[in-house]
Deep mutational scan, measured.
Amino acid sequence: MTYKLISNGKTLKGETTTEAVDAATAEKVFKQYANDNGVDGEWTYDDATKTFTVTE
């Protein structure tokens, strides 16, 4: 399945996607992506749209 990340960081804003077997796997990928880009904030997940959002 395709999962989307919306980043509302102070230094990184935008969207990216990943293919993953489940939401937990996608979350690990996205949290590593955010960490690699210096984004640390509040996370939410919408199962209906398969979208994670991180806001700093």
Score class of each variant (00 low, 15 high):
E15G: 06
D36M: 10
A20S: 05
A26P: 00
D36C: 11
V29N: 06
D40S: 13
D46E: 06
V21T: 12
T49M: 06
V21Q: 12
D47F: 07
W43G: 00
T18A: 08
D47T: 07
T11H: 12
V54Y: 04
G41H: 02
D36W: 07
T51A: 04
G9A: 13
V21D: 10
T53M: 09
A34Y: 06
F52R: 00
G14P: 10
T2I: 14
N35R: 15
E15M: 12
G14M: 14
D47L: 05
T55A: 06
T18C: 15
L5K: 01
K50E: 02
T17V: 09
G14V: 15
D47Y: 07
T53L: 07
T16K: 11
N35C: 15
A24I: 10
G38K: 07
T11L: 11
K31P: 00
K4Y: 15
E19A: 07
D47Q: 08
L12N: 07
G14T: 14
F52G: 01
A24N: 08
N37C: 11
N8S: 10
T53W: 10
E15I: 13
V29C: 09
K13A: 09
L12E: 07
F30R: 00
M1F: 14
Y3G: 03
A24R: 09
E19H: 13
E42R: 08
I6W: 05
K4I: 13
A23W: 13
G9W: 07
K4D: 03
T16Y: 15
A20F: 04
V39I: 15
D22V: 02
N8P: 05
Y33V: 06
N8C: 14
A23N: 05
F30L: 05
I6F: 07
D47E: 14
G14D: 08
D40G: 08
V54L: 12
V39T: 05
N37F: 11
T16H: 14
A23M: 12
T17F: 15
F30Y: 01
L5W: 04
V39A: 04
T51K: 02
T18Q: 05
V29D: 04
T16Q: 09
N8G: 06
K28N: 07
K31G: 02
W43S: 00
Q32H: 06
S7Y: 15
D46R: 03
D22W: 02
V54M: 06
T53R: 06
